[in-house]
Amino acid sequence: MSEPRPVKFRGGGFAPTSIKWIGPVVFIVLIGLLELGTQTGIIAPLTLPKPSDVLATFGELWRSGQLWLHLVPSLTRLLMGAALGVTTGIAIGIAIGLFSHIRAGLVPLVAAIFPIPKIALLPLFVIWFGIDEGSKYALIALGTFTPTVVATYGAVDNVDRSLIRMGQSFGLSWRSIVWKIVLPGAMPGILSGLRISLAIGIILLVAAEMLGAEHGIGAYILQAGSLYDLERLFAGVVILSLLGVTVSAVIGHLERRILRWRS
């Protein structure tokens, strides 16, 4: 008989934990490497700009007030377009979730609109809604609308039927069931759909500002691209990334507040 020994542990892994410091470190190391590469000339100036130059460009944007000149119209467009697209998307999504006729009528339509690259419709929007803000709002609204609809009716479908049955068994009105059971029950799905919708909204910002925008982060990036000004191009891209991170953080905060009840 062999010696008594401890049982071998084999339960490790497969349990992701949040290690906060690794994310920033990856960023810093990557940017540091790029700085080194561009400083020493291993990376040609045509290939990538120096991160420090991008930072300087960003600082210049900030000091000259140009940042706000570009950021304010873009944020307005994102806010207006997304507000329009998301609210109608939630409304239509709930209608699809609740009424079989609307579902039968609209689900194929939404499925048909979803894969259309909205950018392709931009010239059409310019004719319909004008070359100024109208077409930009419309583009972002349509772009955020379809994912919101799909996320919302999926979320409504996933609301625990037994809760609805409970509401009915207590004689709650239809309105109460929708407002107090269906909507809050669909909220997690709607919010995670919102994450995707708003990211698409940010992507479409650049497309929306292709036509007729003097100012805006998208216009700034496009201009930098056409001037082959890599520092400005990257400064613009960094602003978009930051915008994305901010939007995601805001939704995360909303989720933690509104969905406190989730275990």
């Binding site: 070359i131 292709m210 036509l211 007729g212 925008a213 003097e214 496009l222 201009q223």
Partner: peptide
């Protein structure tokens, strides 16, 4: 007011 429209066709 200069309006960038990207393409001659547009």
């Amino acid at each position: 007011k200069f309006k960038p429209l990207q393409k001659v066709g547009a």
